[in-house]
Design a protein around this nucleic acid. Structure first.
Lengths: 232, 232
DNA sequence: AAGATAAGGATTGTTCAACAATCCTTCAAT
DNA sequence: ATTGAAGGATTGTTGAACAATCCTTATCTT
């Protein structure tokens, strides 16, 4: 190991550390809240009181308000004038809209399979294999994560960072819906074989049939969510 | 005019007024800044000083910071730790990504033409007619606005509010690029006939040919923007 | 002349306290 | 049961203060 090599990895590490330290407190708070909302610790409908949260997180109300503003654009929180900030409760209309958007984006991206590079293609296959392994071990959280990775990988076929970002937002909102509906295990179990079907069609370059299968997935998933939400 | 009817229009009017008054100062400031950035009054690259802007708009620095947080997610502003907030300067990579995203979304939405309602179809036609009238009167700002309406109308074929919102963001970012490049008159003049072509294909239900024309528009427009930005 | 270092000034990031505005809850009157 | 008033809690905004960071300028060294 020469000095030049040592300099390289040290420089990389120093750069990573610098990026971490340069996040403002408001951004850090937003990150903590985002995680807590997405993992279901803070449930949909819950009010985020400035006073209580400011004391708990030991930050000032102004800093907290900045963090809230960062999160409302992600549609995870709803800001109501004079009433406060709440975790969004997705309704049936939200689900319908989310799936309408996903159909356009993900089916459009899927059509890019013929010109996609091998890394992007492999990401789709790997997410399916990973989900199947998780299912064999009964790790349903892992299956859910694999499903998200599958859909991210489809979107990534388009090669647009902005599209990836928007799909992240859509998927995050869908996670709120899961928290409303409770245990999503049977949700994921049924759809893993559909992901396998889509990936197999793609591997045979049968893009039209893959798109048809993806649309069927969206139809079934949406119907399932809408039905469950209607029962709440 | 019966009392029932009178109650209806009064109630509607009172509701409109209530919505207007319930915007917080931070949101109002964000709206003012958004408009100023989009119409090019505040140019890409300009720093928005909290001190100067707070004095000019007669709001406190804390309120201004909230407004900034609202705008950074729209990708109009860039927030740099300890250095301040700047109007984003789009580069070539941004343009490439913007058009990659638009190809997926707008072409995907265009495919929904066969099942679209008449109102949505008419919005596309009307935006083209409107642009042609603006061009006859030499109103190039109006032509630019009509072009934006055309693309909004295409997106609206998908019937998703979230998609509409995302395309608004993409189009807003593109307007920043126009401000970098200067007078966009010749940009719009050349593309008005392409919009007409697309609308005519749609009216004949030749959706594939319309999509082909839309892709050609994206290719030419992107190339034009990239070329001009490279010269700056 | 070019590069490095230090100092000073300006701006940003955060906190705190205060007050106004608004909402929500409770209680009393009808 | 409904309405109105009062009180309490929370949100929205302001301004001052201080710490942290960056940028500019001046000085020193090579």
């Amino acid at each position: 190991m020469t000095t030049v090599e040592a300099d390289d990895w040290l420089r990389t590490l120093a750069k990573d550390g610098a990026e971490i330290d340069r996040a403002s407190t408001a951004e850090r708070v937003a990150g903590v809240l985002r995680s807590r909302v997405l993992d279901g610790y803070i449930k949909p409908g819950r009010q985020l009181s400035e006073k209580a949260l400011g004391e708990a997180l030991k930050v000032s109300r102004n800093t907290l308000r900045e963090a809230f503003r960062l999160l409302t654009h992600e549609r995870l929180l709803v800001h109501e004038y004079s009433r406060g900030v709440f975790v969004r409760v997705p309704g049936v209309a939200d689900i319908t809209d989310l799936y309408a958007a996903r159909r356009i984006i993900e089916c459009g991206a899927l059509r890019r399979w013929p010109e996609a590079g091998e890394a992007r293609r492999e990401a789709i296959r790997e997410s399916v294999r990973w989900g199947e392994r998780r299912a064999e071990e009964g790790d349903w959280d892992g299956v859910g994560t694999a499903n998200i990775r599958f859909h991210r990988a489809i979107t990534a076929l388009a090669g647009s960072a902005r599209l990836d970002e928007e799909v992240e937002r859509l998927l995050a909102e869908l996670r709120l819906a899961f928290h409303v509906m409770g245990d999503p295990e049977e949700f994921y179990r049924d759809y893993l074989p559909m992901n396998r079907e889509i990936a197999d069609f793609l591997d045979r370059d049968e893009t039209d049939r893959a798109e048809g299968a993806l649309l069927r997935y969206f139809d079934v998933a949406e119907q399932h969510l809408v039905t469950v939400l209607r029962e709440q």
